[in-house]
Design a protein around this nucleic acid. Sequence first.
DNA 1: GACTTGACTAGAC
DNA 2: AGTCTAGCCAAGT
Length: 105
Amino acid sequence: MRFRAAVYALVRRVPRGHVVTYGQVAALVRQPRSARAVGAAMKQCPEGVPWHRVVNAQGGISRRRVVSGMLTQRIRLEQEGVRLRRGRVPLTHYRWEGTPRWTSR
DNA sequence: GACTTGACTAGAC
DNA sequence: AGTCTAGCCAAGT
């Protein structure tokens, strides 16, 4: 499961108060076509992984089985100082560019 | 190992 | 700007 490990390692680097999109995470781990897989990996994210800093390409919080999860994500982001505009994160302000992963794979 | 599932996306209306 | 559609692909069955 090298993929998931790379995803978690990457997400752990996202600074407080910043966010990244699923597609971005996929690209950063050198697998630009695996955005959906990133979402799947997030379902199981281990402790210590700031999963709430991962949002969809529109800066919104993606739907999931447990709706409460969406709320907690929004709350966590706000607690870090990320302000939502019209229900979404202004990616132009909070997006973390990140750095390509040299890692493992 | 074949088949189904989406915390996804870009593109077309 | 909101909806649909078609590719995608790691994970889970």
